[in-house]
């Protein structure tokens, strides 16, 4: 097979269908940001070491920078742009605003997608476990307290839609 051969793939992103013709070495992160223009998903390291590029693939939180887009042909992807329900913010998003759980905002989409994924996984039962299971998302501004408080509030509120 010719190495410059492109592959046709279908992705459902935030419930919209996309057909893309791409080379195999293109990451899902770069597809989202550069090809589709969904720049809400952030590139913080491009190595799988910061969590800023977290998206939900078939409901599970993963790192889009370590994912080749060709490998996700047919997958349903939710990015930060698809977390809110129309104009209505997801409870996690609102809790982030209320708790000032961000400063520069660059890690925020990854934190939020990760938190949504974590609530769906339903493995965290207390503050210590939230901290551990959210530790894949670095925040350089130091908004940890707000982030963990925001997640705690939504978890205790039973609102993990």
């Amino acid at each position: 097979m010719d190495s410059t051969q492109t592959h046709g793939i279908n992705l459902s992103i935030n419930s919209s269908d996309y057909h893309l013709q791409i080379l195999p070495w293109v990451t899902l992160l770069d597809v989202l940001r550069e090809r589709i223009g969904l720049t809400g998903t952030k590139k913080g390291c491009d190595h799988g070491q910061c969590g800023a590029c977290t998206v939900l693939v078939d409901g599970k939180r993963i790192l889009s920078c370590l994912t080749l887009a060709v490998m996700k042909d047919g997958a349903a992807i939710t990015t930060i742009e698809g977390i809110a329900n129309g104009e209505k913010l997801h409870p996690i998003q609102q809790a982030f605003i209320d708790h000032d759980a961000f400063q520069c905002g660059y890690c925020t989409p990854g934190q939020i997608c990760s938190a949504v994924g974590m609530l769906q996984e339903a493995k965290a039962r207390n503050r210590e476990e939230i901290k551990e299971l959210m530790s894949g998302n670095l925040c350089r501004c130091g908004a940890s307290r707000g982030i963990v408080n925001a997640v705690m509030q939504v978890m205790e509120g039973g609102s993990n839609e």
């Binding site: 799988g48 969590g51 977290t54 599970k60 939180r61 993963i62 790192l63 370590l66 994912t67 990760s114 994924g117 974590m118 996984e121 299971l133 959210m134 530790s135 894949g136 998302n137």
Partner: peptide
């Protein structure tokens, strides 16, 4: 090991 996201992958 790693992080929740990486363990999912």
């Amino acid at each position: 090991g790693a992080s929740a996201q990486i363990r999912n992958m």
